[in-house]
Amino acid sequence: MNDTVVEARGVAKQFGDLNVLKGIDLTINRGDVTCIIGPSGSGKSTFLRCINQLETLDGGYILFEGQPVGVKIKKGRVHAQSNAEAARSRENIGMVFQGFNLFPHMTVLENVCEAPIRVKKEKRKVVQERARALLERVGLAAKANAYPGSLSGGQQQRVAIARALAMEPRLMLFDEPTSALDPELVGEVLDVMRGLADAGMTMIVVTHEIGFAREVSDHLIFMDDGRIVEQGDPRIVLRDPRHERTKQFLAKVL
């Protein structure tokens, strides 16, 4: 069993004339928590979105559990995946967004149950039981029948995490999960994520929470201008950055 979950080589992405990613090489091992930090516009969110095909690559490749992402090889040629194939490969990757993106017309419980029922065709009873356990885990069992609009930002984000976990993913992507939250609500979301990391989930977290990155992550990546500038053990990178650009950034945020 190969325990490399994500292998990215030379990942490039352009929006028009703008080169957002200029060749990202990265390997993520099972059970690792990887935090990506860096200034806005450095491409960290774009890279995260490339992993589950919310963006298409303009160069390089990504393997998820040894399978190419977004493309397939047939008779010695590379073809784009069909929409159905792309959907299938996303089933195993959970994602949490900055803006929560809960479905406002469904209750909390329905939000969590929707994908397992519709996508994995699981029995409603089984899914609901699992969903309630997940809501318990994120501390929101009492809100199962509430609509997202009546929850605080922190509560909504915890529901979003439960919703992603309901699909039993093998990789979780967090795209600035606490950036849209009031400062006093950040802690409750980070606590849930910490619990997830302790349970051995493979996680890639784009964040501005340097404290979280230092405490929880096994691997820290600093990105700037579409490139990985520096990476390594978070305690070493944060205390003793080697690159000038990393030093400048950390001086501003710490």
Binding site: R90, G94, G99, F103, L173
Partner: peptide, 22 residues
């Protein structure tokens, strides 16, 4: 909002499901 489609995609939903349910 576009985020709704993205969230549904990220959960592995097919295009018809996203349209019909979300």
């Amino acid at each position: 909002h576009r985020g709704q489609t993205e969230a549904a995609k990220a959960l592995g939903m097919r295009r018809v499901t996203i349209l019909w349910r979300i």
